[in-house]
């Protein structure tokens, strides 16, 4: 369980000429960027820009078509499933499955319990504490189909809290969430940032990005800009991003970029 005072080395994420995609069509194209340990980065861009795909790639859920993702803690390379806590878009979860809130949140302790380990009394306490910190005390034995969208997202944040990861990836965590819940969840994000964790979030709310995120990566299949939020969120960059998004071309030729480089 994380305590607010615990500082950590954080993890550095290096994207080297990364191309991710489906069926050979790139959704993220030749992206190179270095995300320093302890950064708080917003990923923005129009629909279809490859934002979710990029998170999947960093989380190790999608094999790169080209290039690489490496996660380093100090000088050591770390496997994604050891360092990363990843919150996909809500749709990925089967909400009709009869599991109770406590069990769902407790699965955040996976790295400690593994496939077979039990929960110690201290683990029970930390699950309770995580539930309390998202305001879900009293919901332990409810099944997840009885939760509202906002409550479920709170529960998933409690699980992230328990995962105690160096890198936290959030894919549109505030979609269909009311303002109060959104504010609570963003408080947690700033706390993670204060604890020197690396946090990367896909967001659409530019005001929120300006308010909370020091760095922004604008993506439109290719990298538009990456740097200080105020330098990235400019009129010119928004226009450039909108121009770069086109539908997949079924008859696109093989990408010539590699030959140019060689």
């Amino acid at each position: 369980m994380s305590t607010p005072t615990s500082l950590r080395a954080g993890a550095k994420i290096e994207l080297a000429d990364l191309t991710l995609g489906y069926d050979r069509h790139p959704a993220v194209h030749h992206l190179s960027a270095t995300i320093e340990p302890g950064s708080l980065v917003a990923i923005v861009g129009p629909n279809g820009a490859g934002k979710s795909t990029l998170l999947k790639g960093i989380a190790g859920a999608l094999r790169p078509l080209n290039g690489s993702v490496s996660i380093r803690s100090g000088a050591m390379a770390v496997a994604p499933h050891r360092a990363i806590a990843y919150l996909p878009q809500l749709a990925a979860l089967d909400r009709s499955f009869p599991i109770c809130v406590f069990d769902l949140v407790a699965s955040g302790l996976w790295r400690r319990t593994g496939l077979f380990g039990g929960l110690s009394p201290a683990d029970y306490a930390s699950v309770e504490q995580a539930l309390a910190s998202v305001g879900l005390t009293g919901f332990e034995r409810r099944t997840i189909d009885a939760l509202s969208g906002g409550q479920l997202q709170r529960a998933l944040f409690a699980r992230l809290l328990l995962q105690d990861a160096d890198v936290i990836l959030l894919d549109e965590p505030l979609t269909a969430i009311d303002t109060r819940t959104a504010a609570d969840l963003m408080d947690m994000v700033t706390r993670w940032h204060a604890e020197k964790r690396t946090v990367i979030a896909v967001l659409h709310d530019m005001a929120l990005v300006r308010e909370i995120f020091p760095q922004t990566l604008m993506l439109a299949r290719e990298l538009v800009a990456f740097g200080k939020t105020d330098d990235v969120l400019t009129q010119d960059n928004h226009l450039a991003a909108r121009r770069m998004i086109e539908a997949f071309d079924e008859h696109a030729p093989i990408c010539a970029h590699d030959e140019k480089v060689a």
Binding site: A61, P80, Y86, P88, A92, L104, S107, F116
Partner: peptide, 21 residues
């Protein structure tokens, strides 16, 4: 033996994938 990963594979397969193979 497989109860925990099986339940997770049903509820939230992308979470399971992110913590375990």
């Amino acid at each position: 033996l497989i109860y925990r990963p099986l339940v997770m594979e049903c509820v939230d397969p992308s979470f399971l994938q992110s913590v375990s193979r």
